[in-house]
Every structure is written in C-alpha cells, then in structure tokens.
C-alpha cells in the first residue's frame, strides 16, 4: 500500500511550493482586497468595518463614472482598431508565403518593448510644439494636434499608441488561426470560381471567428486594465480625460492612501474584467466549429 501512497505524496510535494505561493501571493491578497473594500481606514492606520460605505461612495463619485466611461471608450476604440489592422496584417503575412525571419522580428518588436518605453518614445514624437508627428502633419498642410496634451484627443492618441504596439500581436495570433484552417476549403472554393473577396468574407473570416474571439479575450484583459502607458505619459490627465478606473484606483490608493476605497474600485474593475471574459467565452463557444 505504501508504494501506492508514496507517488501521490511526492507529486503533492512537487506542486506544494507553487500552491503555497499561489495561496500566499495571489489567493490570500485577492480575498484581503475584497475585505479591505469593506473597511474604513483611520488616520492612525486602524481599520473598522464600514459596511458597503466604500461602494455607496463609489456610486455617488463623479470620478468613478468618468473612469468607467474612459475605460470603456479606450477599450472599445483600441480593440476595434487593433482587431482591424491585426487581421489585415495577418492576411497579408499569410499570403506572402515566404516571410523572412527579419520581418517577423520587426513585427514582434513593438509589443515586446516595455510599454513604459513606448510611452517615453511617443511622448517625444508627439510633443505638441517640437515633435516629429506635428512636423509631418503641418508639412502636409494639416493642422497640428495637441495629442496627449488635449483632453479631447488624449484617449484616441493612447488608443493609437496601443494599436501601434499590439496590432502585430493580434496579427500573429490570427496568422496562427489562418495556418490551422484546412486547405481543402480554399481548394473547393477555387474550383467553384469564387472571387478572392467572396472567399475572404464567406469562408476565411467566418472560419477565423474562434481565433478572433480568442484574440479579443486576450486583448480585453489587458485593455480593461490599461495602466503603464497612461501612467507614464499623462497620469490620467489632462483634466482627468484619461483617468481610467485602473489609474484612478491606483491614485486613490497610493497618492491619497485611501486603501479601502481604492480596493472597492479595484474589486469593481476585476468584476468588469471577469464579466468581459465570461461574455467573450460564451461568444467563443457560439462561434466554435
């Protein structure tokens, strides 16, 4: 009997460090944060249960609703842009049968560079008075833009930078999906004399839907928690126009040190991310073939 027990014990021992670490650093803090969201902090650092006060405050906090709106504006705009450009790039890469390794390296560079570095880079390029971007615009006779410094244009600018960074990532995922499609489908369509446009919209894209939804899930998780790029470039400004829920929660927590209220904001954002993932997972099941 002991020889049967021993392998199980050894397997448990092998996974124990990871399980203990996960409980201590992920599961426990997760629960702790939920508990924190029901606490009030006094000036001397003691906590007391204050029921749903933090959540009540949240519902009547204009900054929360602004953060929610900014989060979704940035999310929808960025997701749409990078799915569009990513899919086109994937189709182009798929059709160029022999893609030199250097081209692939070129396309992975934007999303493997630290988002913080991308922020530093674009801050200089998009500088309203001396940046190269405005020079190019004005030399084509177009009006210069304030980019990140404009309350009305900061979210599209951030969406543009994120799209520059992550479209190639979406493209590589979609390319994987394209390469996994059965070639017999194309051959049948070719014999039937279907036009390339028809093949694309009637055959390729519908078959790609599960891959596209998978890419949407991966990008949604990141986009709803958009942080690095915003914090390094605007810190939520100008005039809170890029103050997403994640940025707002961080500032409430670590600039104003209202840890309870910040936890309530972050628990809410987690529920939103989880909800998006569940909805998109449903969608993935619906389009599976």
């Amino acid at each position: 009997m002991s020889s049967q027990q021993s392998p199980k014990t050894q397997l448990a021992a092998l996974s124990a460090p990871a399980v203990i670490f996960t409980v201590a650093m992920i599961a426990f803090p997760f629960c702790y944060s939920i508990w924190l969201s029901f606490q009030a902090f006094s000036s001397v650092g003691t906590t007391s249960f204050n029921g749903a006060d933090n959540y009540v405050r949240m519902v009547s906090d204009g900054e929360f609703w602004n953060g929610l709106a900014v989060t979704f504006y940035l999310y929808i705009l960025s997701l749409a842009l990078q799915l569009f450009f990513g899919t086109i790039l994937a189709l182009v890469m798929f059709r160029s049968k022999k893609l030199p390794g250097i081209v692939r390296s070129l396309f992975i560079s934007p999303f493997m560079m630290p988002p913080v570095v991308a922020g530093m880079m674009w801050l200089v390029i998009l500088d309203p008075s001396l940046g190269a971007a405005n020079y190019i615009l004005t030399s084509f006779g177009l009006p210069p833009s304030e980019w990140l410094a404009s309350p009305g244009f900061v979210v599209p600018t951030l969406a543009f930078i994120d799209t520059w960074q992550w479209s190639p990532y979406v493209a590589l995922i979609v390319l994987g999906g394209l390469q996994a499609l059965p070639p017999s489908v194309y051959e049948a369509a070719e014999i039937d004399g279907a036009s390339p446009v028809k093949v694309l919209f009637r055959i390729t894209l519908p078959l790609l839907l599960p891959t596209l939804v998978a890419a949407m899930i991966l990008r949604s998780v990141d986009l709803l928690r958009f942080f690095d790029l915003i914090y390094i470039t605007t810190q939520g400004g100008p005039a809170n126009a890029s103050n997403t829920l994640n940025i707002y929660g961080f500032r409430v927590g670590f600039e104003f040190f209202q840890l309870g209220y910040a936890s309530a904001l972050m628990v809410t954002l987690s529920v939103i991310v989880l909800g998006a993932v569940l909805v998109l997972n449903r969608l993935r099941d619906a389009v599976a073939w």
Partner: peptide, 15 residues
C-alpha cells in the same frame, strides 16, 4: 493575469 495589478498591490503594500 485577469485582475488589475493594483488589486494585489494594495494588500501587498499592507503586508
């Protein structure tokens, strides 16, 4: 990977 980093950072900070 799903929850925002700040959700973990707040309790970590206290811990």
């Amino acid at each position: 990977r799903m929850a925002p980093g700040t959700l973990f950072l707040l309790p970590w900070y206290i811990m």
